[in-house]
Design a protein around this nucleic acid. Structure first.
Lengths: 231, 231
DNA sequence: TCAAAAGTGTTGACTTTACACCCATGA
DNA sequence: TCATGGGTGTAAAGTCAACACTTTTGA
């Protein structure tokens, strides 16, 4: 068949494409956390001379035998010690000049974790939580990446039960509302918020109350089992 | 400074990372078109022996000096002769085993074009439009990629004025409604549809009517200038 | 005059917003 | 008893869904 003649095997294709194997691929994680009623992002001081003094997202090159998600989990694990965090792919960034070391295409992920509950081993003293509003300039195109991840987070937060990853297992409705408010950058009506949440049917009433407060304690809730992500 | 000691230059980092430059990056384009009241996808017969007989999306490896979007436009141009089409990045796919030739991470794009208006030079006789419903198995993980692009298209279609890329410059409200219906896979009420569209204020009344019909002709509309994408 | 599709408005159901008072707790 | 925030309902506005008749055209 004429058709047969044109077919190449994977092996022959690999050889003819060797030229192209000089692009590196990385993952970058925008790790959002929530603490003291504020959304924060975990950043590390850049170790590249070109970006001296600037912070950057946590990322690493993808290993040849490693799935993209596996790479991102590895980055998270290496940097935070955690492997049960929420992680979602957002977008690839691949401008030619985005990395001074050469051609590096990066796949951006965002990740959510509860800062106060997990005690991070911030092993590295150049690794810190930064309030969203205080972040100005970042290394590489990381500011743009951060913005696109924040945008995605805002889209998802009312649709999907993801916000709970920022909170401890037990939380009050006020806690929950405050997280929404800080992500969306708006303030919400308490009664309407409670109605909207109760319609979604995400919450399990734990029959427990807040304690150690100098005012009337609120009920504690948890995310229903069926929405808890399996690691 | 202790700090200074740890800084590396981009050049030194490049060398130490050479090991990682053995992942290839490709773009794959899900090119949606609309013809005969149906959504179609442009596919090509796979030229890999491993996928003999199967069709695949149009894609190519990204060149080291080429932005991701530039790559996708190149694929489109090479395959369709068109360079004024809508293009949007959807997601990266990077499982280790997804490509038999080696490690290839692909960035998926979707693209929209009006089949009947643009006269494609389907230069290659293994390149054809396929109705969405008829597509069963595709080479690589392309079925999964197609599905995620379709999903994204469905999300965008009511939010953003993108659907017009599937239609000629002048169209009737019925034409428009039919495209929505075939993308969303539902049938819509004519009156409610018209109301919903008119609220968005995307359309320019062209003061022209359909012609050559054996029934009452409808008004023709175009997308307002301010929403037409600049190529 | 018939067949085919264009064009057009109203009602009821539902959703969203705005808004205020009493209650439980610890200090 | 006071300060603090918890908990709750209703009415008005807006949005969405369902639904039918008259008009225009060409054959």
């Amino acid at each position: 068949m004429a058709n047969e003649l044109k077919l190449k095997t994977a092996e022959s294709e690999k050889i003819s494409h060797l030229d192209y194997f000089n692009i590196a691929v990385s993952v970058d994680c925008v790790i959002f956390g929530y603490e003291a009623k504020e959304i924060k992002v975990l950043l590390i001081k850049s170790d590249l001379k070109e970006f001296e003094g600037l912070y950057s997202l946590l990322g690493d090159l993808v290993k040849p035998d490693e799935d993209l998600t596996k790479s991102s989990y590895r980055v998270l694990k290496e940097r935070t010690g955690l492997d049960d965090v929420y992680l979602e792919q957002v977008q690839a960034f691949g401008s030619v000049g985005r990395h001074p070391s050469g051609r590096v295409i990066t796949i951006a992920y965002y990740s959510l974790l509860d800062i106060s509950n997990h005690k991070l081993k911030l092993s590295h003293n150049e690794l810190h939580w930064h309030s969203l509003k205080q972040i100005k300039k970042l290394a590489f195109d990381h500011k743009k990446i951060l913005e696109s991840c924040l945008h995605r987070l805002r889209e998802q937060v009312m649709e999907q039960p993801v916000i709970f990853n920022l909170l401890p297992e037990k939380f009050s409705l006020r806690d929950l509302q405050e997280v929404y408010e800080s992500i969306l950058g708006v303030s919400l009506d308490r009664r309407n918020f409670r109605k909207k949440i109760s319609v979604k049917d995400w919450l399990q009433d734990l029959n427990e109350m807040e304690t150690n407060l100098s005012h009337r304690p609120g009920k504690l809730y948890g995310l229903k089992k069926q929405y808890q992500r399996k690691v």
